[in-house]
Amino acid sequence: MTSDEPRRRMDAARVRAELTVQDLWLRYVALGGTGDAFDLDGYLQGLVPLETFQQDILAQALNEALEDSYRAYRVPLSSLPPGDAVDEPLRRFVDDLLDRGPPASPEQSEPPAHHSE
């Protein structure tokens, strides 16, 4: 019964975010999910298993949908101009990620992205 818990929480989240299985599937595909709508439907109803990685993607899709529905109710403050204040932490975070450098691998790989200008 405990192994069923994540699934039930996910279906509850789907209902809470007012998503149809089709809408949820679109969000899941947008995040890189590889299952089809029937896989999701079957999993959410407890009929078929879903691999852990796909469950993670599904969970993220649900969290973003919940966040969106919550955000729709937020009230803006007059003193805070809507700007890119929030972009700064993201930029720093991304720089940190890139600064981690390649993993301790024997050979140096190619740079990840080629540019042509």
């Binding site: 990685f53 993670d56 993607i57 975070f93 991304v94 990620l97 890139l98 981690r100 993993p103 740079p111």
Partner: peptide, 18 residues
């Protein structure tokens, strides 16, 4: 290419950053 050991870990990193 930089640090992740696979797709799943890369996704987890992105989700954590999010």
């Amino acid at each position: 290419a930089t640090s992740a050991t696979g797709e799943q870990e890369a996704f987890a990193t992105l989700a954590a950053a999010a």
